[in-house]
């Protein structure tokens, strides 16, 4: 990452009402249009970190610092897109209805919202499925609708919480590539939470490795490979080397005693 970060977490901790300390002393910087992967075991507070960045919860300790120039635009409704592990669609609404929800909530007139949502659906490869309801779509297609909904407002920052974890390997690879394609054209910043070493190395410019709860950034691995990756990267020796390096960092983070 170069230049001032879009958003930075400084010593952020989160303690829930039930006493569980999900995060402690987490430092994280996300550059404008950076693709950052956050890798860690289940329950290390990765999702909590995303919710804090999104403003859905407030940190108990530490601060979240936004870039002055970009803060207003990013934190306004629609400035941040969020993709959950589940597609989280409204089952009573069509793909188009789901994709245009953020626009309708912002008061965009129906005709304009429909046009923009249709374009977002086309961008994720779902042209022709506007009228289908979630029940009629496959798991991968539902996730595409979810991504279209997150991108329909053209956000500055896209937060993704293990979005492809429930999908089969082939669908997952395809969605990985499509996501990288969208990122290359739109240049939003991405925080991509995952527990897959291979996925994090394939997608991200930097991989932040988190240790077990309470989560903190145990190591950061910068990937020299130009992003988005060239075809064939997944089978290259450089990819394998990076996976091994990140794997070692993860093992070290897991072995280290919790602070």
């Amino acid at each position: 990452m170069s230049g001032a970060p879009l958003v930075a977490l400084r010593g952020v901790g989160k303690r829930f009402a039930n006493g569980v300390q999900a995060l402690a002393g987490l430092d994280l910087e996300i550059g404008p249009s950076e693709f950052l992967a956050v890798l860690g075991p289940s329950g290390c507070g990765k999702s909590t970190a995303l919710r804090l960045i999104a403003g859905l919860a407030a940190p108990s300790q530490g601060r979240i610092v936004w870039d002055r120039a970009a803060e207003a635009a990013t934190r306004a409704p629609g400035g941040i897109g969020f993709v959950f592990q589940e597609p989280t669609l409204m089952p009573w609404s069509s793909a188009l209805g789901n994709a245009m929800l953020p626009l309708r909530l912002a008061g965009v007139p129906r005709a304009e919202a429909e046009a923009r949502a249709a374009a977002a659906l086309a961008a994720v490869g779902l042209a022709g499925f506007e009228r289908a309801v979630p029940r009629e779509l496959s798991g991968g297609m539902r996730m595409r609708v979810s991504i279209a909904r997150a991108l329909v407002t053209r956000p500055r920052l896209l937060l993704m919480d293990e979005p492809f974890a429930a999908l089969d390997e082939i669908t997952r690879w395809k969605l990985n590539d499509d996501l990288l394609g969208l990122w290359a054209t739109e240049r939003f910043a991405v925080v991509f939470v995952t527990h897959s070493v291979f996925e994090s190395v394939y997608l991200a410019e930097r991989v932040v490795v988190m240790g077990p709860r309470p989560g903190r950034a145990a190591a950061i691995h910068g990937l020299s490979e130009p992003a988005p990756r060239a075809p064939g990267f997944r089978t290259s020796a450089r990819y394998a080397d990076s996976c091994r390096a990140v794997s070692d960092l993860l093992s070290a983070a897991l072995a280290a005693p919790a602070a």
Partner: peptide, 12 residues
């Protein structure tokens, strides 16, 4: 759905 409710909050 809790996540959908969060999404509604996110979009104000």
């Amino acid at each position: 759905d809790r996540n959908l409710a969060d999404l509604f909050r996110l979009y104000g």
